[in-house]
Amino acid sequence: MPNDRDALESALRIARLEARVAGLEEALVRRSRELRELQRQLPGRELLNLSRRAAGLPPVPQGRYELEIWRETTALSTASVEETLLDLWQSLTPTPSAQR
């Protein structure tokens, strides 16, 4: 009977869709858990770069000028003032109010 077959197909489609939604909800919960874990574990700069990459933007330039990014050592490294300062300034996020 056409009406019974239609009802059966409809019930099956609903069941498939409900299963898919349940799967997506489960994936969303899992993904949210992963993101919360990333947020807990990653330094601020890495998180920022993750967001920037996801948005198709280049990462913030890396510098060795912030506490979290240092490699603790007693060895001295030779550097050029010009290259170092250009690198330092490039690594900084300016304050919005900065006026020179």
Binding site: T74, S77, T78, V81
Partner: peptide
């Protein structure tokens, strides 16, 4: 206030004036 560090970097002495001027 925000702080940056130039850590264990040695510059040629003749370039230090440029560092200060910056």
């Amino acid at each position: 206030g925000r702080i940056s560090f130039l850590f264990n970097q040695e510059f040629p002495h003749y370039q230090l004036g440029s560092l200060y001027r910056s």
